[in-house]
Design a protein around this nucleic acid. Sequence first.
DNA 1: TCGTTGACATTTC
DNA 2: CGAAATGCCAACG
Length: 115
Amino acid sequence: MSTVDKSGFFEKVYKVAAQIPEGRVTSYGAIAKYLGAAKSARMVGWAMNASKNREDVPAHRVVNRNGMLTGKSHFGGSNAMQQLLEAEGVKIREMKVLDFDSVFWDPMTQLEEPY
DNA sequence: TCGTTGACATTTC
DNA sequence: CGAAATGCCAACG
């Protein structure tokens, strides 16, 4: 495969995030768990931090376990993240995802085969 | 090598 | 719900 980042960890996160369907959201822990690093959910966030340089990574579709748009703070301090999600059909209330359970996209459940 | 930080998760109070 | 504490791991200085 194309070697973009030898770390691999970031690339995996980017791939999973890039596979998130529109109108859906996932959590850092879910991605981390899918990558086999459930305990390193923070690393997913860290990877996302670098992903900001990557347009292929819809970081706005990634929220924390509580469905809260924690990333907004790093997204530019604006409500753009919320607007993007709402534009895709995701209801946002007070920076939190409504029906999070309904819009929640679990890579482990949706993606049968692993990387 | 060490210490600090962090877009998390979980438990406890 | 909120705040505090703990764990976990990688990046940064």
